[in-house]
Simulated scan of single mutants.
Amino acid sequence: MSRNYLLNDAIISPLGFGTDENLRAIRNSESALKFHDNSKFFEDGYYAGLIETEFIDEKFNALGDPSLYTKLEKLLILAISQVMEQSSIVDLSTTGLIISTTKGNIDELGKNKFPSDRIYLWKMANVVAEFFDFQQKPIVVSNACISGALAIKTANDLISTGRFENAIVAGGDLVSEFVLSGFNSFQAISPVPCRPFSKDRQGVSLGEAGAAILIGPANSYTKEKVEYIDSFTSNDANHISGPSRTGEGLYQSIFRLLKNNKINSSEIDYLSAHGTATVYNDEMESIAFHRAGLESVPVNSFKGYYGHTLGTSALIESILTKHSLLNKELIASHNFTESGVSKDLNVIRKNDNKNLKLALKTASGFGGCNLAMLLKKESL
């Protein structure tokens, strides 16, 4: 079986229109989370990472007519376009398109600006695929907040079975009224920028972004590359929105992943956590990591930089994990103050340089879904 790699990528977020711009921002401890007072759900305003539509349209003008596409479709197209520009060898007749999202074009509900079927995830995906003339129908992965990482797993599996020669995984979600009202109903939105794993955390902050990455065999000219090793998923079947108090689902994902690949927890150099800054998620993760013997591994959450970007979050964080491996750098967990979980974790407090080879990326989501993914740096 051929090995697949995380190749060219793009992140479109409030921190920049491209991965390099995003990396520079987070290295400088910049955050997309800003105060907004234009919501009917929050009398005193809220913090989120939002991208101005006018800015997106300005960038999109180089590609096409912005009025023909929704905000989310434009984010996806912009991200995929950057990957395509970096990947001149991509053959669209043999390349798959896999899109991860949780809510798609839900922000268009009731606006009547576009045909009503654009609300459907499959239609949104078709619109994006047709923009580039992908020859095969796009695949949508929508499994709560593990969607972005699950889409990478799906791409690897379909390439490995011969469905595609390679695949572009793209993800996107927006901070819509629908999403804001949903999280508000849980009383889960933090009144300040989120503080993952911190004692003074008060809840989640939301964000919006688009991202894309090429998955497939690496060419021989790549001196250093990041290999996709494997992923395991598990559902704790605990509650529609609350994770297992024992961390069972996430633990099982990690345990099976390490066992199947004959890897000891001591071999993991870096752990990119889900880290939403909600009371139950952070606690669940700390327990699962402790049970898996990962309490000493350097760990961070990128939510303090971007907020929770839902179906894009695990994709963005996988891309950033890839670059952490390649650049030999550990990025501080933004806004972390003092540990607020029952099991001690080695939370990264400041940026550091360290030779990294093997990384573990985890994600968890509503409905009890969990995923653990192994990524490995290879050098020629």
Rank of each mutant, 00 (worst) to 15 (best):
L78Q: 06
S88A: 14
L75D: 13
E108I: 00
K113Y: 07
I106Q: 06
L92C: 04
R118A: 00
K111G: 02
K113D: 13
L97I: 11
L78N: 06
V83H: 02
K111I: 13
E73K: 03
L76G: 01
R118I: 04
S100E: 04
L76W: 08
V90T: 13
G110P: 04
K111A: 04
D117Q: 12
G104Q: 07
N105L: 04
T94A: 08
S100L: 07
T94K: 15
E73F: 05
L72S: 01
T101C: 10
N112Q: 11
K111F: 05
L76P: 08
V90C: 10
S87K: 08
N112P: 00
L78W: 10
F114E: 06
N112K: 07
T94I: 05
G110C: 09
D91Y: 06
T95P: 00
N112E: 12
I98N: 03
I80L: 09
T101G: 06
T95L: 07
G110M: 09
I80V: 15
D117Y: 12
E85M: 12
S116A: 15
M84N: 03
S87G: 10
L72Q: 15
M84D: 01
R118Q: 12
K103Q: 12
S116N: 11
E85I: 13
T101K: 01
I89C: 03
L109T: 11
T101Q: 03
